[in-house]
Design a binder for these strands. Structure first.
Lengths: 255, 255
DNA sequence: GAGTGGTCTAGACCACACT
DNA sequence: GTGTGGTCTAGACCACTCC
């Protein structure tokens, strides 16, 4: 005993726990409410804390819970729908709700994967603009925008030395370009230390990595790698408004 | 000793391990190669197996590794870029690489979140088409397509009884509609038991949930909820071809 | 300092895929 | 049967937040 599977079918304990907790969240808790701490919950359900944590991790991944070290576990609000621009240029500013805020601008070599998408030699220096996207008073995304010098010829190399001012300068120059379109991809990743800090998460937190290639007549004008908080964000693409789904659709019994 | 943090800075062991393993993967391993088992690896690095597993989980999440119970851990190939249709109707068939394969079709009530997007009353019966998307000989996505009867008036209620034949029939009817556009959203989720089975993953595996609302003159013609394997897929949107990024861009030293 | 979540250990057994 | 990854336990200490 002890580790024996009590359930009739062989369903992992943490999975069953997750289901029970999920239903409890729907019925007995409201957004922002604080849950009992992990040690109490584990004891209450008769499982080890590690097992309880496995269930909580899943629920956090699905955007149902929010956990903060030293504070506690709270019921998360429905995911924020953030529009990923399709037709508009990304840097025109003033998105419907969440706007991009330039943070800084440095000059560095692009990662090899980015250099491959730009038509630059790897090792070539490019402008790197750091931007943060804020929605509902919370940082939802951190971006690195790689701009080869050839895309912003008007910009003298030694101007404002690496700050928000210079970032805005680069964006302004970029805004002048005619764009032919954008290639975009979305994949799952884990937050690097720097991104995690900006997003108020721990390193390794799950993020949605949106890679955008801005195409101009001359070729690839710029490449953006934006990491969105996967726990709180729902990325929306679309011809019209936003979607209305709140979180994962209800469990559906196997047919 | 024992649990003491040996590293100069306080960086979690599993995080450091992940970095080390990641570099080893780049230099000493090739795609498809089998890693030593977890017990060996843990001992080799002088950590508990649970800690080693935390690092492996991260790498799997990032699409670097593939783990299969009873088999072992192998080096994963670069993520597959799967195009999420933008302009075309999704059900016309024959996507560039991965095509949708109808599996079955039942009649059921849509989940409340889906019913809200359709203009149906919750509780109303709709056609539910199950499709699987295959790319490179591997199932990459499982979809449930919800079609209200009003969108396919020509279809008699009691026709082919719930099978691929009926699924194709519904899609064919659907194909006749003029679409005004699509709303689409992407978010992180965990695989339900049924989806996990189709995708050859364990329940709870991370998936990218793509929710699409197909808009017709009359309103919402159909809603699709597709779950893509987050470990192996990179969703691409775009006016032109696919992106070239292989996996997470290299670590960037804090500036 | 007290309380929280985050990390880590050293075991054990289970489910599954091979042979 | 043997070996793999998956689950689970019962502890411990650490890092952080708040009082």
């Amino acid at each position: 005993m002890g580790t024996t599977q009590l359930e009739s079918v062989q369903e992992p304990k943490y999975w069953h726990l997750k289901t029970v907790l999920s239903e409890a969240l729907d019925s007995d808790f409201s957004v922002g409410e604080v849950l009992p701490n992990e040690r109490d919950l584990a004891q209450r359900f008769g499982v080890a804390r590690a097992t309880l944590r496995q269930a909580l991790e899943q629920l956090e991944l699905e955007g149902r819970l929010q956990r903060r070290r030293g504070v506690g576990t709270t019921v998360a609000p429905p995911r924020v729908g953030v529009a990923v621009a399709t037709a508009q240029h990304g840097w025109a500013g003033e998105d419907t709700d969440g706007a991009w805020q330039p943070v800084e601008c440095t000059t560095a070599t692009a990662p090899s994967a980015v250099a491959a998408m730009l038509d630059t030699d790897s090792g070539e220096l490019v402008h790197v603009v750091r931007r943060i996207r804020v929605a509902h008073g919370q940082a939802v995304a951190a971006e690195l925008l790689y701009v080869p010098s050839s895309s912003v010829p008007e910009l003298s190399a030694i101007e404002a030395p690496s700050g928000p001012v210079r970032a805005r300068r680069v964006l302004k120059e970029l805004h002048r370009l005619d764009l032919d379109g954008q290639d975009r991809s979305v994949e799952l990743g884990s937050a690097r230390a720097d991104d995690a800090k900006e997003l108020d998460r721990l390193p390794g937190a799950p993020v949605l990595v949106v890679t955008t290639r801005y195409l101009a007549a001359a070729g690839t004008a710029a490449v953006s790698v934006a990491t969105y908080r996967a726990d709180t964000c729902r990325l929306t693409f679309g011809d019209s408004g936003a979607l209305e789904i709140s979180h994962d659709e209800q469990e559906r019994k196997a047919s």
